[in-house]
Structures are given as C-alpha cells and as structure tokens.
Design a protein around this nucleic acid. Structure first.
Length: 378
DNA sequence: AAAGGGAGCAACCGCTGCCTC
DNA sequence: CGAGGCAGCGGTTGCTCCCTT
C-alpha cells in the first residue's frame, strides 16, 4: 500500500507553468512568504497546482537571484571537482554556487559536463594510447592495445562513480569515520585534523545556517560536518578531488585521500569494487587533463586560507608553494604540484599522495600506507 | 521541405528523513 | 514510541527546439 498522495492529482494542473501562474506565485510569496506550508500554498493563491510543484517552480525559477545557463569555467571546475569528491549531492554542490539551483546543476552535469568529461577523456585516451594502464580485464581478445586502453579509459568514470557510491555507503563505523583506524599521521596532519574537528564542532551552527533551508540542523551537525568536505572552517568552499573521505577538512581529506582509496573497510570487509592506486592515479590524471585545469599533468587541491600559513610551517609545503604553487596558486588557494610523466611511469603506486610525497618525502613516513597497499588487490 | 534524432531543460515522481501530535 | 504529514532531494521523464539527412 503506497502512501497517500500529497494532493488531489485529478484536480491539479501539470506541465509547464504559464506566465500568469508564475506571476501569481511570485507575487504571493514575495508578499506573504511561503508560510512554511507548500501544500497549502496553491489553495491560498488559487492555483491548481500541487504544492510540491509550486515549491519547485519557486526554488528553481522564480526565486530572486537565480542564474540560468552561462556556467563559467570556474563553476565547471567546481562542479566537476565536487562531483568527484562527494558524488551527486546536487544540493550541496548548489550551495557552493550562489544563484545556481540543484536542478540546474544536475541538468548541466548530465547534459554537458559529463559529456565533456567523457568526450575529452575518450580523445585523451585515444591520443595517449599506451600511456594508459592496462588492467587486463578486457574481455574482447580481438581488441588492440589501443582498444584495451580505451576500454579502461571509458570505464574510468563508471569506476569513479562506483567508488563514490561505495564511499557514500560508508557506515558510521567504517574506516573513514574511525580515526582510530587511520594510519599514523605526520604531526602536521594530526594538528590539522584536530584543529578542524574542534572548529567544526564549534562552528556547527554557523555552517548549518549557511546551508540553504537549514532544516536539517541536527542531521547536519551530526553528519554533514563529517561528510561534507566543503564545510571547512572558514566557511569558504574547498575542493578536493578524489577525496570523498568523509572528512570535514579539505587538507585532511587530501592527506587521507590515498589511504581512503586503498584501505579496507572498517568492518573488515574488503571494499568490493574499490580502486587500486594505479587506477586512481590514472583516473586522476585523466580527469585533470580532461578538466583542462592546467597545462599538462598536474594535480590540484584546495587548501583553506587559514591553513596555508600553517602549511608554510613545513619545509615541504613551503617548497611546494615556492616551486609550483607560487606561480599559479593565485586561484582560490589552488596549489599545484608537478606530476611529470616520469612519475606516471615510475611505479605502480603513483597515487596522488605518493606523487606529492616524491616532492615532499617528509610527509610520507616510511610504511605509512604500506599495510593498506599490501592488503589491496589491484 | 519534411522527417528523424539528439540535446537541453523544466517538471514530475517517489523515496528519505525530520517534525509534530 | 509510533504514525502521519511534510519538505527536501535525486532520479527520471517528457516536451521543445535545433540540427542533420
């Protein structure tokens, strides 16, 4: 037995909204507000519409300061990065893009960005040919090496999506949410984590209020702070591709990103379908290339401004900033570090973390992720 | 000029979780 | 504590427009 319908389906109009309906709805809400009850709203206005339809129309079209179309390169990058980081949580992504609606972003992703990624990825893999890793899982034995590469490349996004789905399924007792299960960290990492956990707790209310329709206050304080990598402590958006780690802090997420990819689940079950370092690395390179975030192979992360100074306390990060970031880090705290071709071909474990560590070995205590790597089946 | 197909977008559907009684 | 109602969310559908053949 299904639930009762929210409105009398027989007596409500469906389909596109007329200008008159728009005007009526807009005028009423601007004058009286929604009254906290969308279901009752159409009756008050005299519209033959479902309350949900009114709500959707208002939120997605009539609301002030709504932007339609004309997505900028920066917005593209943010959407892509966030999608990679947190998956299809459109409302959260939309919250980071003022004036954009979740529906708009969802449509934009489905119709443009995804194709852009796939299209360019295909082209990229075609051009790069043998640069692609071969996972040896191509069923079609008649395929050439190039086809093998393409097969891998074409599945990269799906694997990425699968990975994100798996991450989204992480339960509260999983590895990602159990600091006790995390590998021992460098003092800097621990410092950042502790600071942000503390500040996240302190700033819960403030951050929750920044979320549009801060209805889910309890839920946000319990879950979103932990899950949403965007909700860092200075309130600015921070983007960490490939983290999806459930950490509240971008730097932390970055620092853990590699271990998250390779770690077994906290419940002792090997994460079925999770990606190997090679795959993750290949995908990350691909996506960086696809997104055209910068020339050639580079990787990015956003680090909140208030942590930049602290990062500078450490020679390795200072060196990164000086050598790579200083030229181009003027863009939203973007830090770039080199990931030259030699790194790509150098070893089977050239994850982003390890790529970074090749520049800054002090951040990678020997054997830090060794156990996880060993336990991981490529 | 007309038909077919694809892209883009608006709107709908149904599920989930929170709140209230 | 449980049931019902609601808002919010993400997936899906269907309409319209435009391009190609």
């Amino acid at each position: 037995m299904g639930r009762a319908p929210c409105c009398d389906k027989a007596n409500v109009k469906k389909g596109p909204w007329s200008p008159e309906e728009d005007a009526a709805l807009k005028a009423y809400i601007e004058k009286n507000g929604t009254g906290g009850n969308w279901i009752a709203l159409p009756q008050k206005i005299g519209l033959k519409r479902c309350g949900k339809s009114c709500r959707l129309r208002w939120l997605n079209y009539l609301r002030p300061n709504i932007k339609h179309g004309g997505f900028t390169e920066e917005e593209d990058n943010i959407i892509c990065s966030l999608y990679i980081s947190i998956g299809s949580r459109w409302s959260i992504i939309a919250a980071q893009l003022p004036g954009r609606t979740d529906n708009d972003i969802k449509n934009y992703w489905n119709t443009r960005l995804k194709k852009k990624l796939l299209g360019r990825r295909k082209q990229s893999s075609f051009n790069s040919g043998n640069k692609e890793h071969n996972n040896g899982m191509d069923d079609d034995s008649s395929c050439s090496n190039n086809n093998n590469s393409n097969a891998l490349s074409n599945s990269a996004l799906e694997r990425l999506e699968l990975h994100m789905q798996l991450q989204s399924l992480q339960n509260p007792f999983s590895f990602y949410n159990n600091p006790a299960l995390w590998p021992k960290l460098h003092p800097f990492q621990e410092k950042i984590i502790h600071q942000n956990l503390q500040q996240s707790h302190n700033n819960t209310e403030e951050m929750v209020n920044q979320q549009e329709g801060a209805k889910d206050t309890k839920n946000s304080s319990k879950v979103d702070i932990l899950e949403n990598p965007l909700m860092n402590n200075n309130g600015c958006s921070s983007v960490v591709p490939f983290n999806g780690s459930g950490n509240n802090d971008s730097t932390n997420a970055l620092l853990h990103s590699s271990s998250n990819m390779i770690a077994p689940r906290g419940d002792g079950v090997e994460e079925e379908g999770s990606m190997g370092i090679q795959q993750v690395c290949a995908m990350q390179s691909e996506l960086d290339e696809i997104l055209n975030l910068n020339s050639s192979n580079r990787r990015m992360c956003y680090i909140p401004q208030d942590q930049m100074a602290e990062a500078d306390e450490f020679d390795c990060l200072r060196e990164m900033n000086n050598n790579n970031g200083s030229k181009e880090s003027n863009n939203n705290n973007l830090i770039w570090w080199s990931n030259d071709s030699s790194a790509d071909t150098k070893s089977a474990s050239s994850s982003s973390w390890e790529s970074m560590s090749s520049t800054a070995p002090v951040l990678l205590p020997e054997g830090m992720f060794q156990d996880y790597e060993l336990g991981y089946t490529l």
